[in-house]
């Protein structure tokens, strides 16, 4: 059953993606509405799939890696669906939807590792740790999309060569503002998630820090965003550099999130696989 819903979700996301690519070519209200609805339907089916899995396993299905990525995609699409009507940045869908489809496909081919049952996810700290970090990562994914859009647009204006995207992308200031908003909401969430993780580790394993690869990469990622936030608020960084840093930050997020799970062993391996 769960697979059926996952396939439906992926198909809906795919339709949404196609719709949003068509929207790039022909910016008509109907097309946008159809694409948006497809994403919404996908998110609904996806939610059912996650719920089924969670009920079956008796815990929130956020591990191992394939589920983690799938859950992350769900949060990302939800974040977009909630945010889009508020900021009115429709073109963001054209960038978010391929990301969603890509993640869904990767999640379906990732090796399904068997992890021992454990009560870890029943701890409040861990739930907070997982929830805050997933939300932060989804917001950073949006910042990543906004950053890519910014760089595309900035390049065209600077080089005075106007291509396909010029009339379709919003103004630089708007994109920069999206980037900024994502950063100042994502960063506290990320900090909260990490602190919750350390708190749990401190209580359960007596030491909050154990040079676990995931811990090291997560801290590095946090540092990248901390630098970006500092430069933005204190020095007044904005524009191209901030966009690049948002992109680098998200790549670091992906490495921490997936790369470490797949290639390195550590404290998280037992739960994440």
């Amino acid at each position: 059953m769960e697979t059926v819903f996952l396939v439906i979700a992926t198909t809906c996301y795919f339709c949404g993606m196609v719709g949003y690519q068509i929207y790039l070519l022909r910016s008509e209200e109907v097309i946008h509405r159809a694409a948006w609805t497809a994403l919404l339907a996908g998110a609904a089916a996806h939610g059912v799939a996650i719920a089924l899995r969670s009920i079956e396993e008796g815990r929130l299905a956020v591990t191992p890696s394939p589920q983690a990525l799938s859950f992350f995609t769900w949060i990302l699409v939800l974040a977009y669906l909630i945010l889009q009507p508020r900021v009115g940045l429709r073109i963001l869908g054209s960038f978010v939807s391929p990301l969603a489809v890509g993640f869904m496909l990767i999640s379906s081919i990732l090796p399904e590792s068997i992890i021992p049952q454990s009560g870890v996810l029943k701890s409040g700290w861990v739930v907070l740790h997982v929830a805050a970090l997933f939300a932060a990562n989804a917001i950073f994914a949006l910042a990543f999309c906004a950053g890519v859009m910014y760089l595309l647009q900035e390049r065209q204006i600077k080089k005075k060569q106007f291509g396909f995207f010029f009339p379709r992308l919003p103004s630089l200031e708007r994109l920069d503002k999206v980037n900024h908003t994502c950063l100042i909401t994502g960063f506290p969430l990320m900090t909260l998630g990490l602190v919750a993780g350390f708190a749990y580790a401190g209580a359960a394993w007596r030491t909050p820090w154990s040079w676990d690869p995931k811990e090291i990469f997560a801290s590095a990622t946090w540092l990248i965003y901390a630098v970006l936030l500092h430069e933005r608020l204190a020095v007044g960084w904005r524009g191209r550099r901030a966009a690049w840093l948002a992109i680098i930050g998200f790549i670091a997020v992906l490495i921490t999130f997936l790369g470490v799970n797949l290639f390195l062993k550590g404290r998280h391996t037992a739960f994440v696989g």
């Binding site: 647009q153 009339p167 103004s171 630089l172 200031e173």
Partner: peptide, 23 residues
Amino acid sequence: TRIGSHAVSISYAAVELARKIFG
């Protein structure tokens, strides 16, 4: 079509560019 969406005078082109930078 985008027949009306491209500025065809210099001053209007300047305004359009400013809009793409500042919103």
